[in-house]
Amino acid sequence: TGEEYIAVGDFTAQQVGDLTFKKGEILLVIEKKPDGWWIAKDAKGNEGLVPRTYLEPYS
Results as ranks from 00 to 15, higher is better:
E25I: 03
D35F: 07
W38S: 01
R52D: 09
T53F: 12
G2V: 12
K44C: 10
D10V: 03
G17I: 04
W38D: 01
F11S: 03
V8P: 01
I6R: 11
D42G: 04
I30A: 03
P57C: 05
I26V: 10
Y58W: 14
L28N: 07
K41H: 08
K33Q: 10
E3P: 07
E25M: 10
D42V: 02
G36L: 07
P51R: 08
G45N: 07
I26K: 08
E25Y: 05
Y58G: 05
E4F: 15
P34S: 12
G9Y: 15
Y54W: 09
V16Y: 10
E3Y: 10
E47W: 11
F11I: 04
V29A: 02
A13S: 11
I26F: 05
W37H: 06
A7K: 00
E47L: 15
I6F: 06
L28C: 07
G24I: 01
V16N: 11
L49P: 05
A43W: 13
K32R: 08
D35E: 08
D42M: 02
E3T: 13
E56K: 15
K23W: 05
G17T: 09
G9Q: 14
L55C: 02
V50S: 02
Y54G: 04
T53E: 14
P51I: 05
E31L: 13
A40T: 03
D10M: 04
G36M: 07
W37E: 04
Y58F: 12
Y54C: 09
I26D: 01
N46A: 10
L49Y: 14
V16W: 11
I30S: 05
Y54F: 11
A43C: 08
D42Q: 03
D42C: 03
G45C: 06
R52Y: 14
Y5T: 01
E4C: 12
E4D: 06
G17P: 03
K22H: 11
L28Q: 08
P57Q: 08
A43G: 12
K32I: 05
W38R: 01
K44Y: 13
W37S: 06
K22P: 02
N46I: 09
D18K: 15
G48Y: 02
T53A: 14
W37K: 08
S59A: 12
D18C: 12
Q14W: 11
V29W: 01
E47F: 14
L19M: 07
P51N: 13
P57R: 08
L28Y: 14
V29T: 02
I30H: 04
Q15F: 09
Q15D: 12
K23P: 02
D35A: 06
I26P: 03
L27M: 06
K41A: 06
G36R: 04
F11R: 08
W38V: 03
F21Y: 03
W38Q: 01
D10F: 04
T20V: 04
Y58A: 09
Q15N: 13
E31T: 12
P51V: 04
K23L: 08
D35P: 02
K23M: 09
G24F: 05
L28G: 03
P57A: 10
K33G: 11
P57T: 07
K41D: 02
F11P: 01
D42N: 15
A7I: 02
P57H: 07
P34Y: 12
L49R: 14
L49W: 11
G9W: 15
E3R: 09
L49C: 08
V16L: 14
D42E: 02
K23N: 05
G9C: 10
K23F: 08
E4P: 15
K44M: 14
T20L: 03
E47P: 05
V29F: 02
W37D: 03
G9I: 14
K22A: 08
S59E: 09
A7M: 03
I6H: 03
D18Q: 15
E56S: 13
G9T: 14
T20K: 04
T53M: 11
L55Y: 00
E31S: 13
K33I: 07
V8K: 09
P57M: 07
Y54T: 05
K33L: 11
K41M: 09
L19Y: 01
S59V: 12
G48R: 01
A13D: 03
K23R: 13
K32Q: 07
T1L: 12
D42R: 02
D42W: 01
D18T: 15
A7E: 00
G9K: 15
D42P: 02
V29Q: 00
D35Y: 07
E4K: 15
N46E: 11
E56N: 07
D10Y: 05
T1H: 12
I26G: 02
S59I: 12
D10A: 08
A43K: 12
G45Q: 06
I39T: 08
V16P: 14
T1S: 13
E47H: 11
L27G: 00
L19S: 01
Q15V: 09
G2R: 08
K23G: 04
F11A: 02
E47V: 13
E3W: 14
L55Q: 00
R52C: 11
S59D: 12
T1I: 11
L28R: 10
D18H: 15
V50R: 00
I39S: 06
L49N: 12
A43F: 10
